[in-house]
Nucleic acid binder design. Structure first.
Length: 489
RNA sequence: GCUCCGGUGGUGUAGGCCGGUCAAACAUGCAGGCCUCUCGAGCCUGCGCCCCGGGUUCAAAUCCCGGCCGGAGCACCA
């Protein structure tokens, strides 16, 4: 019993009002106008997790009611990202397939005098709204509004000339919720449904209606939606619906990382970034490419939890979480960045050495590092930076092999054999025969080239390994060149 | 400017609704040690926090008021 308490403390808190509903229903409702990033994933993971905890239902709903920015390729990318994160959904909807439903509800409100078609110039409307006054259209009869509505649907208005507004209390303290717009005219063709519709619902209208129709019980969303909740509540009152339980969380930021979708899209288009999975981004696609594990991202998001306070997340924290999951499963290999040649004289003529793939898990197997011998001396490549720490006469160890004494720095590094047994001297990774060229893309998108031990050539794209004393790395491509992406230390 | 919301170690969270058991917990970070043929992992020790000021109370991180600071929104985007 006491242990259970501790368990519960460490996990997510319970959702409010869970006993008011027989089945808990949550949803994730992305706009397919850009790639998913850490900020979105928070809503997705939390919503999904709660639906599973309470054995409820989880809905994926694409909110693509703005033909101006919906992107066809994003639907699949988003689904792929979600699946990768371990998220499965029970129902899948596209708002662009539900336009008729929104029309029916709009018409109902208009007929009942709870909404009206406004032909006012936006600026005039705002002026009136801000002083709490109705615009001329508001007082039209229901039948006048109905004919305006039919005119809208029939294409009788140009873009921007008419909008359906939901009536609210004009004295609401926040002008932004007064008579908010629910549907507008967009002539641009929609990437999924083409030019089928001219009238498109705005966010609050379609989201509000869908949440009710789909039986959503808990809406988990960022606090930037607080005002939207108020707007939607006004509409729910018109329909006589009960508003779901809303939970909001604060903004998630990552210092030095661009999370904004519009900014990201711009940089991708302008060529400043190489794609949605550019290593400098915190999109899910980029994190996957860099070698982050879904489990690490899930754990981190759950630990951040549901607070309404803003939180800023550093890469360091992300690294720490990922390392915890990666370290036990990643194979180890030798890699030397910026290699320099090293000759060792008078050394035993080893042809190869067998090493564990994981230092504390012999069951993971071994790999072989062959050694080439030229003119009676074994030849190695070691990292330039490592050699820079030494002076002539210093003793160092070629890790897992032998200790040597540095004899001369030029024209090539030369050392003499010292001993075999492990000594308390610097230990450097090395490669020799069969080493393969490996390019590593660093987090700032720069590239470092080096030599990796032969076994690295047999790795597959997607494998995440540790290059000892260098860092974790995910194999990004194997041909024509062997390229890895640096994950973190 | 207006309307909301929030402020716990460097960072991320727990605790706050139901004041005392909170000179405050966990993770990460940083410092040191142990271990290890990796500058990784693991283990141990240490550092470090209740925004400020009043009030209520025997007692406040927790309740109230004020201030300061931060955030969100004020789109015919989502």
């Amino acid at each position: 019993m006491p242990e259970k308490r501790v368990e519960e403390r460490r996990g997510l808190p319970d959702l409010p009002d869970i006993h008011e509903y027989k089945t808990i229903v949550t949803r994730f409702a992305p706009n397919p106008n850009g790639p998913l990033h850490m900020g979105h994933v928070r809503a997705a993971l939390l919503s999904h997790e709660y639906s599973r905890r309470y054995k409820g239902k989880f809905i994926l709903r694409f909110e693509d009611t703005n033909p101006e920015n919906a992107m066809l390729e994003m639907y699949e990318l988003i689904k792929r990202d979600l699946r990768w994160l371990g998220i499965s959904w029970d129902e899948e909807y596209y708002q662009s397939d539900r336009v008729e439903i929104y029309y029916a509800h709009a018409e109902e409100l208009i007929r009942e005098g709870k909404a009206y078609v406004c032909e006012c110039d936006v600026e005039n409307f705002r002026k009136l709204r801000d002083s709490g006054l109705p615009c001329p259209c508001r007082n039209l009869t229901a039948s006048e509004n109905l004919s305006r509505w039919r005119k809208m649907l029939a294409g009788g208005y140009d873009e921007g000339r008419a909008v359906v507004r939901i009536k609210t209390d004009l004295s609401h303290p926040n002008p932004a919720v007064r008579d908010w717009p629910a549907l507008r005219i967009v002539t641009k063709s929609h990437p999924r449904v083409g030019g089928k519709y001219l009238v498109w619902p705005l966010y609050n209208f379609s989201t509000g209606i869908d949440d009710h129709l789909m039986g959503v019980t808990h809406v988990i969303r960022g606090k930037e939606h607080e005002i939207n909740e108020e707007r939607q509540r006004a509409m729910y009152a018109h329909f006589g619906w009960k508003y779901p339980t809303a939970v909001q969380y604060g903004r998630l930021s990552m210092p030095g990382v661009e999370l904004s979708k519009t900014q990201t899209m711009q940089m991708v288009r302008s060529g400043n970034l190489q794609g949605f999975d550019d290593v400098r981004l915190a999109t899910i696609a980029a994190l996957r490419r860099r070698g982050f594990l879904p489990a690490a991202i899930r754990q981190l998001i759950f630990d951040i939890g549901l607070t309404p306070v803003d939180s800023s997340l550093s890469w360091e924290t992300l690294y720490a979480y990922n390392r915890k999951f990666l370290d036990p499963v990643a194979n180890r290999y030798f890699f030397v960045a910026n290699p320099v040649k090293l000759l060792v004289h008078n050394a035993p003529k080893f042809k190869e050495v067998r090493l564990r793939l994981h230092p504390s898990k012999p069951e993971m197997g071994e790999r072989v590092l062959p050694i080439v011998i030229e003119n009676d001396s074994p030849v190695f490549y070691v990292a330039k930076d490592d050699m820079a720490t030494l002076r002539v006469g210093d003793i160092f160890r070629l890790k897992d092999l032998m200790n040597v004494k540095l004899e001369r720095l030029a024209p090539v590094f030369e050392a003499s054999f010292h001993s075999l047994e492990v000594m308390d001297v610097p230990k450097f990774q090395w490669v020799s025969a069969g080493a393969v060229v490996l390019e590593v893309i660093k987090p700032d998108a720069s590239v470092e080239t080096g030599l990796a031990e032969p076994s690295v050539a047999a790795l597959n794209v997607g494998d995440i390994v540790q290059l000892e004393r260098y860092g974790f790395v995910r194999i990004d491509s194997t041909s024509p060149k062997l390229i890895a992406v640096y994950t973190h230390k």
